[in-house]
Nucleic acid binder design. Sequence first.
DNA 1: GCCCACTATCTCGGATCCAAAAACGTCCCC
DNA 2: GGGGACGTTTTTGGATCCGAGATAGTGGGC
Lengths: 241, 241
Amino acid sequence: MTTVSTKADDIARVLEDEIVGGLIPPDTVLRQETLSERFDVSRTPVREALRRLAALGLVSFEPNRGVRVRSISAQELREAFLVRAELEALATEVATPKMTPDDLAEMDVVERRFGELTLELRDQARRGVTRDATLFVEWMQANYAFHDVIYRVAELPLVERIAKSARRTFIGDRVWQARAELDQLYAKNDLQHRAIREAIGAGSATAARTLAREHVLSSNTLIEVVLETLGASGRAPGWNG
Amino acid sequence: MTTVSTKADDIARVLEDEIVGGLIPPDTVLRQETLSERFDVSRTPVREALRRLAALGLVSFEPNRGVRVRSISAQELREAFLVRAELEALATEVATPKMTPDDLAEMDVVERRFGELTLELRDQARRGVTRDATLFVEWMQANYAFHDVIYRVAELPLVERIAKSARRTFIGDRVWQARAELDQLYAKNDLQHRAIREAIGAGSATAARTLAREHVLSSNTLIEVVLETLGASGRAPGWNG
DNA sequence: GCCCACTATCTCGGATCCAAAAACGTCCCC
DNA sequence: GGGGACGTTTTTGGATCCGAGATAGTGGGC
């Protein structure tokens, strides 16, 4: 069973990762010729890949003028959090009665890992150490892993897909430059995860729902603060060779 | 009229409408050559359009084997309603405090139109008249128009976009063949619209939220019943590309 | 008569080629 | 010196061409 994938899909995946990961900054103009050279293909699959990204809302086509990586406004970011809050709340509610002891155990494992990484991050922050990106990325992944357990148990693929596409509007590593605010986020997230875990363990779907919703929304308010403090600095131009 | 649009986008829009409108039934295999002849273009823009539809989840690519119009499983349909329920509830909650008297008046106009169409439909159903599709389509549009007022006031474009894309998984005109069940839907929807309208008018965001959620969810349960009575013409779940 | 291999054809994915629109630069005129 | 018309260059959108994989049809072997 050779999983044949088309070039266009490969390119789309790579570009998608690079855009959502912040490697390709917003407002960048993507030249078809450049991309075709880079991936060593013709412009045809490149254009198909770009069409796909356009449909996903990651880039915007300006006819006869090229494609541009879309930058997300504060409004869009806020909305993305709202959507995530509602959908994760829904998934958590649905998942709660379906949780097996094994699932709960997995949540505990993931959450323990998340707690450790949180401690490391807070320690770094407290000592004023220059934050290293890899640790933060690990922390984010552990955070997502926690929610992924819930999604897996909920068995709502459509909900999961939409929520995760909303998740990706998170602006890569730009956010964690604000120190003090993030320290609160670290502690709060850990506590909230535990609360959600316990509510699920207690079999209270509505409580778990409420907690999950507030969990995402609190991240939202914090991100808003961060964006505001980063505020007038505008967009980091970051050039990609 | 400087709004030049590309052929690929035109084709994508047409095909999109035809698929969501049920004109192109699920599980249809789309031949690129056929489409290129029909739109009198080469296969290149056709393929780009298909890529876009694939990213929207309307068709699925099977590499080297063509594209197939995705059929939605009962599970997907149920999920779509769940998503709509949460997001419309959110939009309603956000919209409530932003409603101006003019907005409320518009809601009344739309709702009155909806009520009239509802009466016509119920009358037809009661007399056993062969249902005509145009009236049903009008009714659906009036139904959507009611919710669109809410979306407009809420000013949540992302939420609106996602909710409407979930809306389109509605299976065209296949559903309204079940008579008795739909009669309940007609009456119930009208009453629920009024209740939502009044809750908004009273300025109770949480009540409006709850009502909106239940409104969509009740449609869901009814659709489930309809699908069940229409028989287990269980379609193979498509695969997402 | 049945099954497997081989081939012919059909369709798709990708490469290449061409026309048209936009960005760029130059030159002329005021 | 400044502004606009005009030609060049760049880049995109679309058409055509080609190789690869898949399906179907045929023929040979058992």
